[in-house]
């Protein structure tokens, strides 16, 4: 028996928005420790890794490990039926081919049950090595989304350069060049507005705007985003999901032909 209850169903709605542009389907691996998902996008360029810890749920029970293959477009249709303030419970029997999403209004006067068929997906898990990154940058997630969106107008790629002084995002193409520099903030009223840099070595890497824009769909999950970079290894873009977990996206830098 698997049962997971979230008072804020909006969290799962936002998680879905954060993955459905990259993934058509994915396996939600449920265990005693929580719900995990790891999947590459269709072109195998980027990797999405989601972790929702069992202790972050309002109620969580998973007697046997369960892998739920889910069509994300179908799940999205169901999640659209939930109000943001509804309480969500996901339920499945052991070895089930169905998952039930139950939504309850706050006053418990309306209860909705949606059953969805599960799929058998060939899942390939990748081993992500422990890495000490040369630069770890934290910045407001809305700022990151805005920068990536703005620079996407100039070209297919954005160069992210990090030094102790700050971060520079650059793009260039037929219409011209664009540079956006962010300095490390010295003092801000709110932590979520801060730009912080932990740097061992300066780094400058080129990334595909298209994927960064897809990662930025996670912006509603967290006020801050963390970028971890080292030369010649994939960038990690991480959004914390409240006290329940995180979503991480991995994208290899472009290399000169």
């Amino acid at each position: 028996m698997f049962e997971a209850r979230l008072v804020q169903s909006s969290i799962l709605k936002k998680v879905l928005e954060a993955i459905k542009e990259l993934l058509n389907e994915a396996t939600f691996d449920c265990s005693d420790s929580g719900i995990q998902l790891q999947a590459m996008d269709n072109s195998h360029v980027s990797l999405v890794s989601l972790n929702l810890r069992s202790d972050g749920f309002d109620k969580y029970r998973c007697d046997r490990n369960l892998s739920m293959g889910i069509n994300l477009a179908s799940m999205s249709k169901i999640m659209k039926c939930a109000g943001n303030d509804d309480v969500l419970t996901m339920k499945a029997q052991d070895n089930a081919d169905l998952v039930t999403f139950m939504f309850e209004s706050q006053n418990q006067e309306k209860v909705m049950d949606y059953e969805m068929k599960l799929m058998n997906l060939d899942q390939e898990h990748l081993g992500i090595p422990e890495t000490d990154y040369s630069c770890v940058i934290k910045l407001p997630s809305q700022e990151f989304a805005r920068i990536v969106r703005d620079l996407s107008q100039f070209g297919e790629s954005v160069v992210i350069s990090c030094t102790k002084e700050g971060i520079k995002f650059s793009a260039g193409g037929d219409i011209g060049n664009a540079n956006i520099k962010l300095a490390q903030t010295s003092n801000v009223d709110k932590d979520e507005d801060a730009v912080t840099i932990e740097m061992q070595e300066p780094v400058s890497l080129t990334f595909a705007c298209r994927y960064l824009n897809s990662f930025a769909k996670a912006t509603p999950l967290s006020p801050q985003v963390q970028l971890s970079m080292s030369a010649d290894v994939p960038l990690v873009v991480e959004y914390k999901i409240g006290d329940i977990g995180h979503i991480r996206y991995y994208l290899a830098p472009k290399i000169e032909d």
């Binding site: 590459m40 072109s43 195998h44 360029v45 980027s46 990797l47 390939e124 898990h125 990748l126 081993g127 992500i128 090595p129 790629s157 080129t206 595909a208 290894v233 994939p234 991995y250 994208l251 290899a252 472009k254 290399i255 000169e256 032909d257």
Partner: peptide, 14 residues
Amino acid sequence: MALQPSITEYFATR
């Protein structure tokens, strides 16, 4: 022209 490597070139299948 810059090339986009696959993520599988960095992370091996487990």
